[in-house]
Structure formats: structure tokens, C-alpha cells
Amino acid sequence: MYMVGDGSAGARWKDRKRYLWLCGLAVPLSPFVAWLFVEYLHLGVFWAFGALLIAVIVPLVDRFTGVDKANPPEEVVRELEEDRYYRWCTYLYLPLQYAGLVFACWVWTVAPMGWPERFAMAATVGVVGGVGINAAHELGHKRTDLERRLAKIALAQSGYGHFFVEHNHGHHLRVATPEDAATARFGETYWEFLPRSVFGGLRSGWRYERERLARRGLPWWSPRNNVLNAWALTVVLYAGLIAVFGWSVAPWLVVQAVLAVMFLEAANYLEHYGLLRGTHPNGTYERVAPRHSWNSDHSCSNLFLYHLQRHSDHHANPLRRYQTLRTMEEAPQLPAGYAVMILLSFVPPLWRKVMDPRLLDHYDGDLSRVNVDPRLWESLVTRRDM
């Protein structure tokens, strides 16, 4: 309970989702649940339980639970952020994440699995790693050394350690501008966005870290290079798993990492699709506001993703902890939770049919206010004028 108001006249506010945040731990437990289903139901499809959980079960629950537009009162935000229970909900993800990875390696080694079943298990572990990147996203924004170290550990499974640097010092500065590799442009498909974001983010993170070290008089190969030491964790992790379980697990470690990155980049794709910050007369961009991120208030998927879908408030106030993020009236709204929208992004014609009208409505049909893929500008203007 948190007090709203002063003294005896104050009311008490209760976070009704307090214990529901533990639902997110179902994701790292999914490799174990997959094994139980296969063991007792003898259906190999359940090796993909992690993917089924995110792609089928969560959207179905979203369908029946609807949206949650409740915001915590401003008077309780500080106390709510200092409540360490919420931090442990994210901290606990990591040991379960790595227990599931080790378990998957054991299963790949000893279970009677065909190639499709091994891939299905890799998909489950990839979902765990992808949501683990989201846990790292929550932890990496915080100022404590512990949480920043935990963010690097969470990223090691997917080999995406440079995200720790680039997201905070690249994406958050350039979001909703043509210069941001992690902002999808209007007319750009997910499959075109994916390599641009992956390699653009890598270049951005490396450039920032190299310049940071140079300002301190240190070489780029310094142990203090946050990109290199994050990648080193992946090397140590993979080497340890291969030493214990053999080289047979190596291809599946790569597959699950690729799937985790694809999951993350699909979220990146939908979070700012076509949105553009305005510029001041001197050419600088306006401050990031809630209208520069797509938002979703679907209840279940927000619980599983630690309010990642309240992305508008996150970008406007990046230091806010997930339990205090608010739904914002001016934020453009997605028609479904991230899981559905990610699947939609894999099929560009469906994505364009659903999202392009919403984007244009957000800008009252004014293409000059849209972050348009430059390759498509002429054709889009022609189509608009027809």
C-alpha cells in the first residue's frame, strides 16, 4: 500500500499488478515446461513452448483481458520506484535464463530429437534470450553498478553486448530521426530494417565507446571498453557450454542467439515505425516526446515484457522504472500487443495494411512530417497525389 495525500485524510493506493509482474518469469522457465510437455504428452511440437507462449498464449490472454490504462499517482512514484521487490522481479530473470540455457544444452545433447525438434528448442531458448535483452534494457538504463553489470550478463546469451552501449548513447539520442539505425522508416520492411539496425547499431556502439575511451586517454582495446568486455562474457559463456556439452551444441547456440536478436529487432522495428521528431529553426531536433513512440496498453503482454509496451513514457523519461511507466494520451497506439505486431512485421503486406493508415492518421496525412524511407519518397508522393 502507498499513501496518496497527507496524513489521516490521505487515501491508500495499491498496485494491483504487484504480484502479476512475476508472470514474466514464465518465459525463462519455458525450456523446462517444454520438456515436461514433451515427456508426458509425447508431442515434439512442445519443444517450441517458449515461442508458443509468446506468440499464441499471451496474445490470447491479451484478447480477453483487454487494455490497462491505469497510471500510478504521481505522489507514490518515488516510493514505488524505491520498492526493491520490483527490482527482484527482473533480477530473478537472469538465474532462470541461464538455468534454461544450460538445460537446453543438456537436452540437445541427450534427448532423442530430430533437427526440427532441436530447432524448436532453439526457438524457445531464443525467445528467452530475446526477452532477456528486454530485461537487460530495463537494467541497463539504471544508474547502479549492479544493474548495469546484470544487463551485460543478460545480453551475453544472445551475443548482443554492444546493445548496452548503443541503446543508451545512440538510440535514445537519435530516436525518431533518419540518423537512428534503430528507428524504422515508413515503407521500410522488417527484412530491410533488420540488417540496417543490426550493423548500424554495431557501428554506433563501437564508435561511441572508442571515442569515450579516447577522451580518457585509453586505447580502444582497453579492458574498460564496454563493448569488448560484454562480448567477452559471451565468449566465456559459449566456451564453457561447449567444453561441458561438446561441439554439438555450438550450432544451436548460434541459432538461438540469431533468433533472440531477430525478436529484439522486430520490437525495435515496431516501436518507432515512421515516426519523426520535428526540427527547430537552427536545425536541431525537438526533445523526445511521447508522440515519438508507438504505445500499447495490452495487459498481459505488458506484464511479460516489464511495461516495454509503454514505450512512449520510457523514451520521454528513460530513468523511470518499469512499474511506474505511464500510458500517455498523446502517444500513437498499436492495435495489439508486441507479440502480434512482431508476427505481423514478418509479413510486409499485412504490416503495411495495418500500420500505414495508422501512421498517416497520426500525422493527418502530411508526409512531410513522416520519417519516410528515402528510396520510396517519390513513389509515395505520386501515390498520394493520384
Score class of each variant (00 low, 15 high):
Met3Trp: 15
Met3Phe: 12
Val4Cys: 01
Gly5Asn: 08
Gly7Ser: 09
Gly10Lys: 11
Gly10Leu: 09
Ala11Asp: 10
Trp13Ile: 06
Lys14Ala: 12
Arg16Leu: 01
Cys23Asp: 00
Phe37Arg: 04
Phe46Gln: 00
Phe46Asp: 03
Phe46Val: 07
Leu52Arg: 01
Leu53Thr: 11
Ala55Gln: 12
Ile57Arg: 06
Val58Asn: 05
Leu60Val: 14
Val61Ala: 12
Asp62Ala: 04
Arg63Ser: 10
Phe64Glu: 13
Phe64Lys: 07
Phe64Leu: 12
Pro73Ser: 13
Glu75Cys: 00
Glu75Ile: 02
Val76Thr: 01
Val77Thr: 14
Arg87Thr: 08
Cys89Leu: 08
Tyr91Arg: 09
Tyr93Trp: 00
Leu96Gln: 06
Leu96Trp: 05
Ala99Asp: 04
Gly100His: 08
Gly100Phe: 09
Ala104Leu: 04
Trp106Thr: 00
Val107Thr: 08
Val110Gln: 14
Pro112Thr: 01
Pro116Glu: 01
Glu117Cys: 04
Glu117Gly: 00
Met121Tyr: 03
Gly126Gln: 03
Val127Pro: 01
Gly129Thr: 07
Ile133Lys: 06
His137Tyr: 08
Gly140Leu: 07
Arg143Asp: 10
Thr144Lys: 11
Arg148Gln: 11
Arg148Tyr: 06
Ala156Gln: 02
Gly159Asp: 01
Gly161Asp: 07
Phe164Gly: 10
Val175Asn: 03
Ala182Thr: 10
Arg185Trp: 05
Phe186Asn: 02
Tyr190Lys: 06
Phe193Tyr: 14
Pro195Val: 08
Ser197Glu: 14
Phe199Gln: 11
Phe199Ile: 12
Gly205Phe: 07
Ala214Cys: 00
Leu218Asn: 00
Pro223His: 13
Val227Pro: 05
Val227Ile: 12
Ala230Phe: 03
Leu237His: 05
Tyr238Ser: 09
Val244Ser: 15
Ser248Cys: 12
Ala250Cys: 10
Gln256Arg: 07
Ala257Asp: 02
Ala257Val: 03
Val261Glu: 12
Leu264Thr: 06
Ala267Phe: 15
Tyr269His: 13
Leu270Arg: 07
His272Lys: 13
Tyr273Leu: 11
Tyr273Met: 10
Leu275Gln: 12
Arg277Met: 10
Gly278Ser: 08
Asn282Arg: 11
Gly283Pro: 01
Thr284Ile: 15
Glu286Thr: 11
His292Ser: 11
His292Lys: 13
His292Glu: 11
Asn302Ile: 04
Leu303Lys: 04
Phe304Asp: 00
Leu305Gly: 00
Leu305Glu: 02
Tyr306Val: 07
Tyr306Thr: 05
Leu308Glu: 05
Leu308Lys: 07
Ala316Phe: 09
Asn317Val: 13
Arg320Cys: 05
Gln323Ala: 00
Leu325Ala: 05
Arg326Gly: 06
Thr327Asn: 06
Met328Ala: 12
Ala331Ile: 05
Pro332Ala: 03
Gln333Gly: 02
Gln333Lys: 08
Gln333Phe: 02
Leu334Val: 08
Pro335Cys: 15
Ala339His: 11
Ala339Ile: 06
Met341Ser: 04
Leu343Val: 00
Ser345Asp: 11
Phe346Glu: 06
Arg352Ser: 14
Arg358Trp: 05
Arg358Glu: 03
Leu359Tyr: 06
Asp361Cys: 14
His362Leu: 10
Tyr363Ala: 03
Tyr363Thr: 06
Leu367Lys: 03
Leu367Asp: 04
Ser368Val: 07
Arg369Pro: 08
Asp373Ile: 05
Arg375Lys: 13
Leu376Arg: 10
Trp377Asn: 00
Leu380Gln: 11
Val381Ser: 08
